[in-house]
Nucleic acid binder design. Structure first.
Lengths: 189, 189
DNA sequence: TTAAACTCTTGACATTTATCAAGAGTCAGA
DNA sequence: TCTGACTCTTGATAAATGTCAAGAGTTTAA
């Protein structure tokens, strides 16, 4: 598993860094089952997860218990509740495995240490932060400026892998609509 | 004006950095009128704006021309279209002055130079990026998991200054509802 | 100072989307 | 390989929110 991460880092930096051996030992493998929760509201998020295989769903629930998915993460992506993690305060979100996963996780203390000691680590973190921020900005704009049908079309064009891989219920929770509305509108396309 | 920025930097870092004179000369004052556009879709965003006085609205428009506001920025905050700015590609957003503003702006080239040369500059940028990302994550979660009334209450509690300062139309565009719905629901609280 | 342009509110009505329910199909895991 | 638990679809109905319109009040900028 660790070699997947090594390859990921190499791709991002354009070459394998000299000090890779400072970084990799801080990661720990985690094997999960479908449905396992990695984080719950109120809990402090201690890890950042790198996905070797599988899919993670980051979501919240409303007053009626309905789930709203903020983001799905798949192979070679990183998932955490950044704010809770960086400040080590209770999270507002759930993180759940939508399928059996192979993950590598790094603990808060290791993460902070590497961020100060290894410049390339810090650089990759900044890259990921910028891309994540931009994706989320885009998401706010689509949620407020598109109706349900437009959002479905947008997702089909921009997230076809996610669309094909997950259940309607999960996709609906990402689009901010009910599963029934998703079924009905899909047949109109 | 520039002394406001100097104070802002001092507050963020806990002290006035030695190399402040490397930073401040890169900022240029801009005085605007109400309604002035600083950025339009299709245009490349060349600046990051620091607000000395006034308020900026970052928004998109839908197929019918309705505006959806992603964020409002007020005194001592920073505004830009980060993704378009960092990649120097055409933006999808508008940035508009909702009132006459006093701004300080820094050009893309200066920004990149300072980010590599001045560590404290880079550190503040990372801070702002993290907070912005977190705010936007929160915004996605409120947009998908709360109904209109809950979002209004949330905004009254969490953004009272914005709520008091801007027109109903602008606030409604931030909440993702029509101005009429905002009027009607406010009377129910 | 004043006219034109916005703003807020309210009513009537339309549209979108959610909710509840039920049946057929599919899948995960013991 | 079986079985209970999900999943998808469709219908009927309800609820939330949008759209259009109009009048009174308020602000802006020449």
């Amino acid at each position: 598993m660790i070699e997947i991460l090594q390859q990921h880092i190499t791709n991002r930096l354009g070459k394998l860094p000299d000090n890779i051996d400072l970084v990799l030992p801080h990661f720990e493998a985690v094997i999960t089952k479908r449905g396992d929760l990695l984080l719950q509201p109120g809990e402090v998020c201690k890890y950042v997860y790198f996905i070797v295989e599988g899919c993670l769903q980051v979501f919240v629930t409303d007053k009626n218990g309905n789930e709203s998915t903020r983001e799905f993460y798949i192979e070679e992506q990183w998932a955490t509740d950044i704010f809770g993690f960086q400040n080590q305060i209770p999270s507002a979100e759930y993180i759940r495995c939508t399928e059996p996963c192979k993950l590598l996780r790094i603990h808060y203390e290791s993460f902070q240490k590497l961020a100060t000691v290894v410049p390339q680590f810090s650089a990759i973190y900044k890259q990921i932060l910028e891309v994540s921020y931009n994706n989320t900005v885009y998401r706010v704009n689509t949620l407020t400026s598109m109706d349900a049908l437009e959002r479905i079309k947008w997702m089909m064009e921009n997230k076809p892998k996610i669309m094909a891989r997950l259940s309607s219920k999960l996709i609906a929770s990402y689009l901010g609509i009910s599963a029934e509305t998703l079924t009905r509108l899909k047949s109109k396309i």
